[in-house]
Computed example of a mutant assay.
Amino acid sequence: MRRMPSPSNDPLRPPPPRRIGWMVAVLLILALLALGYAERDRLSTWIEAWTGRAGVSPLTASTPQASNSAPAVASSRPSHIASAPLQLPASTAMLPALGDSDAFVRRELGGLLGKPGLAWLVPHRLIVHFVATVDNLARPMVPTQVWPVHPVPGTLRVTGQGDILAIAPDNAQRYTPYIRILTAIDPQHAARLYFQLYPLCEQAWRELGHPHSAFNDRFLAVLASLLQAPEPQGAVMLRQPKVLYTYADPALQASPAGQKILMRMGLENERAVKAWLRQFRQALLTQMQPAASASSPGR
């Protein structure tokens, strides 16, 4: 019988927070409540200032059923998008259980990606791998074993030697076929499919250890992070302290994993991906509406 990974070594789960950090946060919250600073927005500001983490506000998101998904509603308030919470369109699709969803998801993606795109997908646990990868794109690294797609063939092409290393200009060619697959996708179609499958994404998000937040919040935040990726001009210098390469520029090396991936693609490819992501993000936002509770009298 296959041994199930424990939460501490499961690559699909984010690294657990340090216990000391959470103890400080709890003590801080209690102190703020005692001082009368229980108003939510001010409390979030204080928590973020002390811990470096945004305060988590209550969310309402329906848990999808095994075969008949209820409408998924997520309270979402990214500061770069809108001042009021956003509500996702209700999904009316008859969805399978998350554990049995691979065939259904591949069938739906077939009309979006075509045969070359389907061959790029990892065939198992697609929704879970997608959700875990989205989460990790804003973290320091994305383990390849949780990707929903196969890695780009080959290895990073480098020019130079010793302490003078840079990403080779022809390294961008490795990504070209996959950039073409992505940019050929209709952003409006992709947005509709995201909303259709969202109840499954929300269930996977909760099962991966996030019971008090909505996946859509994380998704929008990660899209914003990717669009803010630096665009290095000229040669991108590297270092090789051990086996893996790192960016020589400390600022680039400190970037989230998703931004590092974009920068490895080459400037032209990075801009092409960003252009598509902007259209996709806009397609998402135009179909989201301010939550009714945000404008209710007396709220």
Results as ranks from 00 to 15, higher is better:
M1K: 14
R2C: 02
R2M: 05
R3D: 11
P5A: 13
S6H: 14
N9A: 12
D10F: 07
L12C: 00
P16K: 12
P16W: 05
I20W: 06
A25E: 15
A34Q: 08
R40S: 10
T45S: 14
I47M: 15
A49V: 04
T51E: 05
G52A: 10
R53H: 14
A54C: 09
P58M: 11
L59H: 13
A61F: 09
S62E: 11
P64D: 03
S69A: 15
A70F: 06
A70W: 10
V73Q: 04
S75N: 06
H80F: 14
I81C: 04
A82F: 13
A84H: 13
L86M: 11
A90G: 13
S91G: 06
T92A: 13
A93V: 07
M94L: 13
L95W: 03
P96D: 04
P96E: 10
L98W: 03
G99T: 10
D100K: 14
D100R: 14
S101Q: 06
A103L: 15
F104P: 01
L109S: 09
L112C: 08
G117T: 02
A119I: 01
A119E: 11
L121H: 03
R125H: 15
R125Q: 15
L126S: 03
I127K: 01
A132N: 02
N136Y: 00
T144V: 12
Q145T: 04
Q145R: 14
W147S: 01
T155E: 09
V158I: 13
Q161R: 14
G162F: 05
D163E: 10
D170F: 03
D170T: 12
Y178P: 02
I179T: 14
R180Y: 06
I181K: 06
L182P: 05
I185P: 01
D186S: 15
Q188Y: 08
A191M: 07
R192E: 12
Q196S: 09
L197V: 01
E202W: 02
W205D: 00
L208Q: 15
R218C: 13
F219Y: 15
L220R: 08
L226R: 01
L227G: 04
A229S: 11
E231T: 10
V236C: 01
M237W: 15
M237P: 00
L238T: 02
Y247L: 15
D249M: 05
K260L: 01
M263E: 01
G266Y: 07
L267H: 02
E268R: 14
E270Y: 04
A272I: 03
Q279A: 12
F280V: 05
T286W: 13
P290V: 11
A294W: 10
S295A: 15
S295P: 00
S295L: 15
R299T: 12
